[in-house]
């Protein structure tokens, strides 16, 4: 089946830092295959190195050992096929919604008309039509993160990394945004790797959920979640999956 075509392959990936107190192991020997167009959730307690793992995939940090292959070839540095939605509401405050969204193609030197058209379609997709000329300071937290998502999509990545994108949002907005991400993903299929520390969010969004241990980040278990979308968060099956994962989770201090 096409669905199980491996896009991203992570093997023996480790990352450690030298600190004053000695060696700090953030990520330890991760082996992971990511399939085409799947919604993969990386779930783990806070500060367990999930972000480091994601940064390595995005090429923002160099692994200490191991390698990451995209479609069979090892990736080095930032790769345009891999886009990222950041944890903080990382918008350029001096740029409007439109200017923030079109930043990827702009850096690549795509013509204004062409990149605007593309950016506009994603601004519409995330539901920000009419806010193109607004500055981030005028937007709410949820709207800012919508811009972050539109920006990542406009750069046309094949793999989309999302690093706790809704961590800074209030519970209500967060739930709306989870539904939005699911809707956008179903409309514009991409391979998504989504990091979160929220079990419910993981169960709601993930095709597969990779559970990580406390620091250093090691893989504990992979759960396959084939509940029908959109998922009912109070259905028996959902709660069962949720309880199963939660029992297996390390408590973060």
């Amino acid at each position: 089946m096409d669905e199980h075509k491996v896009r991203l392959e992570i093997s023996e990936l480790s990352k450690s830092y030298e600190t004053k107190e000695g060696r700090f192991q953030a990520v330890e020997k991760i082996d992971l295959k990511v399939y085409d167009n799947e919604f993969l959730v990386l779930l783990g307690p806070g500060n367990c190195g999930k972000t480091v793992l994601l940064n390595m995939i995005a090429g923002l940090e160099q692994p200490t050992s191991g390698e990451i292959r995209l479609d069979g070839s090892v990736i080095q540095g930032s790769d345009r096929r891999i886009g990222m939605v950041f944890q903080k509401l990382a918008l350029m405050p001096w740029k409007t919604v439109m200017q923030n969204t079109e930043i990827g193609p702009k850096f690549r030197g795509v013509k204004k008309e062409e990149r605007r058209k593309k950016a506009q379609s994603y601004i519409d997709l995330v539901g920000l039509n009419g806010f193109e000329k607004a500055y981030p300071a005028q937007l709410s937290g949820g709207m800012k993160q919508r811009v972050g998502i539109a920006r990542a999509y406009t750069n046309d990545p094949e793999i989309l990394l999302m690093d706790e994108p809704f961590g800074a949002l209030d519970a209500q907005t967060r739930f709306v945004m989870e539904q939005e991400v699911q809707r956008i993903w179903e409309q514009e299929k991409r391979t998504i790797i989504f990091v979160t520390n929220n079990i419910e969010e993981a169960c709601f969004l993930g095709d597969r959920i990779v559970l990580f241990s406390e620091c250093p980040a090691r893989m504990k278990e992979i759960y396959v979640n084939d509940l029908k979308r959109p998922r009912d968060v109070i259905s028996q099956e959902f709660l069962k999956l949720r309880a199963m994962i939660s029992d297996n989770t390390d408590l973060a201090l």
């Binding site: 990222m84 350029m92 750069n155």
Partner: peptide, 14 residues
């Protein structure tokens, strides 16, 4: 300059 904004630009290939 915020590190995260630099990272955004980096992942956009700047």
């Amino acid at each position: 300059t915020q590190k995260v904004l630099i990272n955004v630009a980096k992942t956009c290939g700047a």
